[in-house]
Design a protein around this nucleic acid. Structure first.
Length: 449
RNA sequence: GCUGUGAUGGUGUAGGGGUUAGCACGGCAGAUUGUGGUUCUGCCAGCCCGAGUUCGAUUCUCGGUCACGGCCCCA
């Protein structure tokens, strides 16, 4: 048998109902925050992603050549396509800021694991054309609001600001420019050493760049700070002790954190962590990420921050912007695990249709005579599943029960003769005969809910 | 990129060099010709793929595929 390709998944009706509910929940939250949905193609020109992330990413792409020898690739992420769209659609002419949301599958050629697939789904938002602490707070607040609304528990949000350590390092005299022949600027190396806890490497780097290695200690202390918003004060003390270092980024972060506290529900765990670097040099300001510890190694479910990318598309005025991507599959995985652990049957709020399904059972009659009623009930907004196999009553009832119907409508020869239908609520067992019209049946169903 | 474990009906599993490959859920039919969830009976449906060892492989060996873990990475 032909199997589905590695790292891909099929979604059965039950799973799909959950995914649709989750997408809708995220969409609803985004709308409440003023974001509007957009969509871009599943494949793009290869250049789009090499321009953003460098040629090294090609090995991880589903890249291909089309019949006209165009170099294309399935999209590995959604931020770059959104940037491209803004430029291509002339959206810089719209009133700023733009609040955009998006959802779709992305493709990366890498080993599949639980929570890590070759085809995966991302939900994300971008707030374009306004930087500043309040814009950043709006983005973080939406992320928190989404995770809170979907019922996720035990998650940790870590918020940092790449400008703080970067500012301290450049303030000490470390260069942010890449020297000839080097792969990265000294500042980036230093950030990496701080993140990995390599103090010897940091001191060595300082010495090589003519900086007193004793300055490594306060930076280490800064990087090791951990805690909530109260962490800002010790950070301020450390930064103030270093000559030539600006406090602007720290002040901005503090403004952001205060705004988030006012705008969003209180997350289960919020930490200020100045080493959140997101590994990427286009992040320029606030950065944040969310982890769910019980997912293990693939536990990061959301990440974002302020970045400068639009200059790549000829729109430097829109830099920096701010956004985040949410790992749709991973959040669902966490929700499923948590639902199982707590015995909760509904994994995503709203995944079960409260309205319920109605089985319409023509019994021993020509179904054609009741089809207009079926159509009428559907027009009235009921979900009607018409019995198609000619089951006898006991089988039909069992069928209706096992596919999860809330109501049955039985029409047999006697009913047809007397112009009636038997409407039954399968949960309560309550049953009544009503006139054989769509209106009367719909009314009875509504009354028995 | 490194590395570990696993694969038996649709699902979950037992077993094991020669078996009618067992069980449960499920699906279909009947007990039951106008009312389901219980019960009983019957039926349906499986050893991931390829090569090797062997008289004989679903079982052992190797390769592949897929899945699940631990590091690395993660735009």
């Amino acid at each position: 048998m032909v199997q589905r390709p590695r790292g891909t998944r099929d979604f059965t009706p039950k799973v799909m109902a959950r995914r649709l509910a989750f997408e809708q929940l995220l969409e609803e939250r985004a709308r409440r925050h003023g974001f509007s949905r957009i969509q871009t193609p599943i494949f793009e020109k290869l250049d789009l992603f090499t321009a953003k992330s460098g040629p090294g990413i090609v090995s991880q792409l589903y890249a291909f050549e089309d019949k006209s020898e165009r170099q294309l690739t399935l999209r590995p992420e959604l931020t770059a396509p959104v940037m491209r769209m803004i430029a291509e659609e002339g959206m810089q002419m719209l009133q700023k800021p733009l609040r955009l949301s998006y959802y779709g599958q992305c493709y990366r050629y890498e080993e599949s694991k639980k929570g890590r697939y070759r085809e995966f789904f991302q939900y994300g938002v971008e707030l374009i054309g306004e930087a500043g602490p309040l814009a950043e707070a709006e983005v973080i607040a939406l992320a928190i609001d989404m995770l809170d609304a979907c019922g996720l528990e035990n998650w940790e949000i870590r918020i940092g600001h790449v400008g703080i350590l970067k500012g301290a390092l450049t303030g000490l005299g470390l260069s942010a420019d890449t020297p000839d022949g080097a792969s990265e600027p000294p500042v980036a190396s230093a950030m990496r050493f701080l993140d990995k806890g390599d103090d010897a490497g940091l001191a060595h780097l300082f010495t090589n760049n003519g900086i007193n290695p004793e300055h490594a200690a306060p930076l280490r202390a800064l990087a090791d700070l951990e805690g909530g918003i109260e962490t800002i004060e010790p950070a301020r003390e450390i930064l103030s002790s270093l000559a030539g270092v600006s406090l602007e980024a720290l002040d901005d972060l503090q403004t952001t954190l205060n705004a988030v506290a006012a705008l969003a529900p209180t997350p289960p765990s919020l930490a200020v962590d100045l080493t959140v670097a997101r590994g990427l040099d286009y992040y320029t300001g606030m950065v944040f990420e969310v982890k769910v510890p019980e997912l293990g190694g693939e536990g990061q479910v959301l990440g974002g921050g302020s970045y400068k990318l639009l200059h790549l598309f000829g729109l430097p005025d829109l830099d920096p912007s701010c956004g985040f991507g949410l790992g749709f599959d991973r959040v669902l995985l966490a929700l499923e695990a948590q639902a199982e652990a707590s015995g909760r049957s509904e994994v995503v709020p709203g995944e079960t249709d409260p309205k319920g399904l109605v089985a319409f059972i023509p019994f021993g009659i020509d179904s054609a005579s009741v089809l207009p009623i079926v159509a009428g009930l559907r027009n009235a907004g009921e979900r009607i599943e018409l019995e198609l196999r000619g089951r006898k009553i006991p089988k039909a009832m069992k069928w209706a029960n096992s596919i999860g119907c809330q109501f049955t409508v039985v029409v047999g020869p006697r009913d047809l003769e007397s112009g009636q239908a038997m409407v039954k609520n399968l949960h309560s067992g309550e049953q009544q005969a009503v006139a054989l019209t769509a209106d009367a049946i719909a009314e009875a169903i509504q009354a028995m809910r």
